[in-house]
């Protein structure tokens, strides 16, 4: 049984029985003939026998992996931010900032490549760049760099602004479960922890959600495999 979470930039693929998740650029997925039994993410829609929307996959995964009654999960990846807040394990807030893509992972990846950034060298400062719109923020970074600021510091402020936005977007919870590619971005996680307790869940929560949904229909597939519990 094949599971796929096909995001805008990266696709996470898992086949039952495998001991790891395969992560490939989505452009390879688009060029190839990948098919899934269960899929999520807009690129998977026409490649899946069973398709679940991103919020359902994320929510199902979060409910399967987190025991708390009340909790908030933010999935921050390449293009967009998805949020689910539960109270009594019922969703009370669902949000998906699919419209404005500028301030998320793809932008940071591009900035990193453009300025040849070593992410481990990014230092998080108290100052931040307001990220009301990612395009303006990029302009601000370019202005700062051309004025003599180091790209590392300018991008650090951008990351700080992004973390503040995420904290506001999630409703400023005391504890935040973070899913998606940004769990791997050390400066982002570090600065987000200035605002709230952060639990890192890795990039496979939606895949865990798909597994849980598949198990509801066929309990014989068993518990969520260890390969998906990489957090």
């Amino acid at each position: 049984m094949k599971f796929g979470d096909a995001g805008s930039s990266w696709s996470k693929l898992f086949t039952a029985g495998d001991d790891s998740v395969k992560i490939v650029p989505t452009r390879e997925l688009v060029a190839g003939d990948f098919r899934f039994d269960w899929g999520t993410g807009h690129t998977a829609r026409n490649r899946s026998e069973r398709f679940e929307n991103d919020l359902i996959a994320l929510s199902s995964g979060a409910l399967a992996l987190v025991d708390d009654d009340d909790f908030t999960v933010l999935d921050l990846g390449s293009r967009d931010a998805k949020l689910v807040a539960f109270a009594g394990r019922r969703p009370v807030k669902l949000d998906w900032s699919v419209g404005c893509a500028s301030a998320t992972g793809a932008t940071l990846e591009m900035l990193g490549k453009f300025y040849d950034i070593d992410w481990e060298a990014i230092e998080v400062e108290d100052k931040w760049t307001p990220v009301t719109c990612g395009t303006y923020a990029i302009e601000r970074i370019m202005d700062q760099v051309s004025a003599g600021e180091s790209a590392t510091r300018a991008i650090g402020r951008f990351v700080h602004g992004l973390a503040r936005n995420c904290f506001d977007f999630t409703g400023k919870p005391d504890k935040l479960y973070l899913s998606g590619g940004f769990t791997l971005n050390r400066p982002f996680v570090e600065v987000l922890r200035r605002y709230t307790e952060v639990v890192l869940m890795g990039r496979t929560v939606p895949l865990s959600g798909l597994w849980s949904l598949a198990r509801e229909e066929n309990p014989e597939i068993g518990e969520i495999p260890k390969a998906l519990l990489n957090w």
Binding site: G88, V92, S97, V98
Partner: peptide, 26 residues
């Protein structure tokens, strides 16, 4: 503890996903 949905001109994929998820999960 319900879900507020505000829609203007078009039903976006995100709003549709929110409603679907709320209905499915609750």
């Amino acid at each position: 503890r319900g879900m507020h949905v505000d829609v203007h001109d078009t039903l976006s994929a995100a709003t549709m996903a929110k409603i679907e998820a709320f209905i499915r999960l609750s």
